[in-house]
Amino acid sequence: MKISNPKSQISNLRLKMLKVNNIHARIESNEILKGINLEVKPGEVHAIMGPNGAGKSTLSSVIAGRDEYEVTEGDITLNGESIMDMAPEERAHKGVFLSFQYPIEIPGVTVSNFLKTSINESRKAQGLDPMPASEMLKKMREKMSLLEMDKGFLSRSLNEGFSGGEKKRNEIFQMAMLEPTLAILDETDSGLDIDALRIVANGVNKLKSKDNAVVIITHYQRLLDHIVPDFVHVLFDGKIVKSGDKTLAHKLEEKGYDWIKNELAEAK
């Protein structure tokens, strides 16, 4: 996978691509994230696991810049630059991509028109000319075949009437087209049957390179059988309470989240 953003060549230096430093975030008066620390380097795959309500989706939204959440403390940097004051679109232009747990249906805007706008706005932000239509189409075809998608997909309204699996596949298709340096996959496995899971995971694996990184947010182990993480973190009650390698995911699957709860209780 090529890096479209010249600025991100700095990542070749193997610096920390993403650094989440003591992030506290709340929605209204509820504090959801209570001091998150996370470092991701280029080429790495991180998995963030945790029970419902632990703050997994909040973390992904805060990184992508959703302003519904108020960040009260801490900083997030991408390739050494703070992104906290950046709009979601600016973060996207810097290479952040979030695959949504519940992709939004937008009737009347076709997949191809949406992607064309998305790619060309990113190019514009980087001082590049719009991608020629023929090149765009070629790239779309290539990435669609990677995800075993029918070409009729392009002329359908964005996510409208898509099955759960189609929506998720469409998210990864967008990721493939946008070529982010940091991809956050929020519960991408939910709603996928075995075949769709294999196709999506296969797609993500093919898009992986030494220059980009993937953060997988998931409740279950099963996606991690296909996309093998270098690190697994357990998020619980707004904090990362445990980190380890892929064996941690297996242990969680085996023992359940109560195991973590009990361990925490004992420590107290």
């Binding site: 992508a64 810049g65 959703r66 302003d67 519904e68 709009a87 979601p88 679109e89 973060r91 996207a92 232009h93 952040v96 991509f97 979030l98 949504f100 992709p103 939004i104 937008i106 009737p107 009347g108 805007v109 949406f114 706008t117 998305s118 790619i119 706005e121 990113s122 932000a125 309204s157 967008q174 946008l178």
Partner: peptide
Amino acid sequence: FYLRSRGIPEKEAKAMLMYAFSND
């Protein structure tokens, strides 16, 4: 937010949503 997270600036994203709202 969905559109903006894909790099589409706020103004354009709003316009796309308004178009989507009205186009049928």
